[in-house]
Nucleic acid binder design. Structure first.
Length: 455
DNA sequence: ATGCCTTTGAAGTAT
DNA sequence: ATACTTCAAAGGCAT
């Protein structure tokens, strides 16, 4: 599986998460196939983390942390911060077009004094099959969702990139969420989508999908229709509910990839169920070359950086625990005794230092799994252990012998892409999953979506 | 109306 | 330090 080496370079330090779940041999093989060597990756990583970014990120992170507990002056603070950011950009921060992304103006941090040549081809030379711009689908909101901006607003961003008029009181033109400019959304944020939207688009790119009304779900179209082009006199209503809008997490590399490829998979597979589609996308993600993945990691890194700049006081903690704590409840249900990793290792005679046991997430491959068993000893509803009932077939993880013997919560999802859930048991999905199961781990297939073309 | 499913990765909390 | 959890997107489906 193509992976980026951690190299400790990522400003978010997330690369240690990029763990292969394929056999090492397989990975090695692929690595050999790729001209993109580990060294290349190291170079890439180092190039991704350049001096300016480091400074900027660290500064932003510092500010972020320092403001973590400051909930006052929320609006003003963000406004001020954005002003400063904008000024910084005016100072030449955004000035160079990124060859890989013709429409995207990159901030200097990504093009550090030329040290990270955007034309290095290590990041941007991703084939744009399907005739889709690499960022097109990454923009959560296509042009269709936007109307032409007011004619009085500047539209020429080709020179200044994502210049956002600081002096303009945007709230005077648009009804902004309580966060005002400071709540301008991040994901593929103002710099990206404002640039991608083409002439006539409001350069501020306000608002943004990352900002969700406190109420929760909101259709993207709806979101933009209401916020971006809402009229100022809707303000009074908001005053009644000066709730802080929800700032969404920046999308990670895989999420960006999914955004881009979902439509394609839907078209190819005649599928609409996201669960099934995501399984396909997950496999395709692993089948991507390092260069291809690097593109998305790079984009994700930019997203995080931009997010950090836009919302220095934001933390993922802000959205933590807001969703149903279903998993916790599930765990309570299934907590007959999956056992701690330590206990699990001991139980299976694994090395406590090197072997992995537990939920098979991250880090090393589960030895137990490789042996055809379960990463942890699954337990039935009565708490009795069920030990490795099935053997893997052609690398396919053991599938549940029965619902009783296979509580889904005991099945590491990464190893069970074919869970036949209630939502995937339709005939179509079933066939799709069966077929995809036959291709599981076959990362070299070109069309891993051999789903029925018709119903 | 709300949550689940399903994926990977980032970042949070818990131990 | 490590393990584990939550949330990002998506849309059909179940409750």
């Amino acid at each position: 599986m193509p992976q980026l080496s951690s190299g400790g370079g990522d400003d978010q330090g997330a690369n240690d998460e990029m763990i292969s779940f394929k056999d090492e041999g397989e990975q090695d093989e692929k690595i050999q196939e790729n001209a993109f060597t580990e060294r290349d990756l190291a170079d890439l990583k180092s190039s991704l983390v350049n001096e300016s970014e480091t400074n900027q990120s660290s500064n932003a992170a510092a500010v972020r942390r320092s403001q973590q507990n400051e909930h006052r002056g929320y609006q003003e603070k963000h406004r001020e911060h954005l002003d400063s950011v904008s000024k910084h950009q005016d100072g030449g921060m955004y000035k160079t077009a990124y060859p890989g992304y013709p429409f995207l103006m990159l901030p200097d941090p990504y093009i550090p004094n030329g040290s990270m040549s955007p034309s290095s081809n290590k990041v941007s030379v991703v084939q744009q099959s399907h005739g889709m711009h690499p960022l097109t689908s990454l923009l959560p909101y296509s042009n269709d969702h936007f109307n032409p901006s007011p004619p009085h607003l500047p539209t020429d961003m080709s020179q200044k990139g994502v210049h956002r008029p600081q002096s303009q009181d945007i709230s005077g033109f648009y009804s902004l969420p309580p966060g005002g400019v400071g709540q301008m959304p991040p994901s593929m944020g103002w710099f990206s989508h404002s640039l991608m939207l083409g002439p006539g688009m409001h350069p501020t790119g306000i608002p943004h999908p990352a900002i969700m009304p406190p109420s929760g779900k909101l259709d993207h179209h709806d979101h933009y229709d209401r916020n971006m082009y809402a009229k100022p006199h809707q303000e009074p209503k908001r005053e009644k509910e000066p709730k802080k809008p929800v700032i969404k997490k920046p999308l990670n590399a895989f999420m960006l990839y999914m955004k881009e490829m979902r439509a394609k998979v839907i078209a190819e597979c005649t599928l609409k169920e996201s669960a099934a589609i995501n399984q396909i996308l997950g496999r395709r993600w692993h089948a991507l070359t390092r260069e291809e993945q690097a593109k998305y990691y790079e984009l994700a890194r930019k997203e995080r950086q931009l997010h950090m700049q836009l919302y220095p006081s934001w933390s993922a903690r802000d959205n933590y625990g807001k969703k149903k704590r279903r998993k916790r409840e599930k765990q309570q249900d299934s907590s007959a005794d999956p056992g701690s990793p330590k206990k699990c290792r001991a139980r299976f005679g694994l090395n406590q230092q090197t072997d992995w046991c537990g939920p098979c997430r991250r880090k090393k491959k589960c030895i137990r799994y490789l042996q055809g068993g379960w990463c942890t000893s699954p337990t039935s509803s009565d708490g009795s252990a069920i030990d490795s009932p099935l053997s893997p077939v052609d690398g396919i993880p053991p599938q549940p012998a029965s619902p009783l013997h296979n509580p889904l919560h005991l099945m590491p999802s990464k190893h069970t892409p074919l869970i036949l859930s209630k939502s995937t048991t339709t005939e179509l999905s079933f066939k799709a999953l069966i077929e995809s199961s036959q291709q599981h781990d076959n990362i070299h297939h070109h069309h891993d979506c051999t789903l029925p073309k018709s119903h």
